[in-house]
Amino acid sequence: MDETGKELVLALYDYQEKSPREVTMKKGDILTLLNSTNKDWWKVEVKITVNGKTYERQGAVPAAYVKKL
């Protein structure tokens, strides 16, 4: 869990989004888990830093590609 009490997951593999509802992640990324009720796809929040600014993006990733921490 992070400092706000939200559950975290670890990306076990790289994943490139294939639709606007998904998010890209790299192996080793730590993501915030938002919903894991679907056994195949979990909704997560990814933090992306671009030019020193951090953005948050929500989307789905394959459940088999992440592990709860």
Rank of each mutant, 00 (worst) to 15 (best):
K18T: 11
D40E: 11
K39L: 10
D2L: 14
V23C: 06
T4A: 12
L8P: 03
E3H: 14
K27E: 05
K6Y: 12
V44R: 00
T54A: 07
D29L: 05
V46M: 09
T32S: 07
N51W: 05
E45I: 13
K53C: 13
N35H: 07
S36A: 11
Y55C: 10
K39I: 09
P20W: 09
Q16D: 13
D14L: 05
N38I: 04
Y55A: 06
N35F: 05
A63R: 08
Q58V: 14
P62V: 04
D29S: 06
N35S: 12
N38T: 06
V66E: 01
K68I: 13
K53F: 12
V50L: 11
L31G: 03
S19T: 10
K26E: 04
S19I: 03
L8M: 11
G59L: 08
K67M: 14
G5F: 12
A60W: 15
L12W: 03
E22W: 05
K6A: 10
T32D: 03
K26Y: 10
E56M: 15
E17C: 12
T54D: 08
V61P: 03
E17F: 09
M1L: 13
R57W: 06
Q58H: 08
V23E: 00
D2N: 14
L34N: 01
D2W: 13
P20R: 08
W42H: 02
T37L: 09
L12M: 09
K27V: 06
E22F: 06
W42M: 02
A11G: 03
W42I: 04
V9P: 00
A11M: 03
K39N: 11
A63V: 05
V44N: 00
D40S: 11
D2K: 13
W41H: 01
P62W: 06
D29K: 02
L33W: 02
V61I: 08
K47Q: 11
G28Q: 01
K68Y: 08
N38F: 06
A64M: 10
L69V: 09
I30S: 01
E56V: 15
G59F: 09
R21E: 14
G59M: 09
A60R: 15
N35Q: 10
K18M: 10
K68D: 02
D14W: 06
W42T: 01
L10A: 04
Y65V: 06
A64D: 10
W41G: 01
K18W: 04
E3A: 13
V44W: 02
E3Q: 14
K26F: 09
N51T: 04
S36P: 05
L8N: 05
D2T: 13
P20F: 09
T24N: 04
V50Y: 09
R57H: 06
T49C: 15
T4P: 14
L34A: 02
V9R: 01
V9S: 01
L10P: 00
L33I: 03
Y55V: 11
K68H: 07
W42S: 00
K67R: 14
L31V: 05
I30T: 04
L34V: 11
L69N: 00
E56K: 15
L34K: 05
I30E: 01
L33Y: 01
D29F: 06
G52S: 05
P20S: 11
M25Q: 01
T4R: 13
E22L: 05
K43N: 10
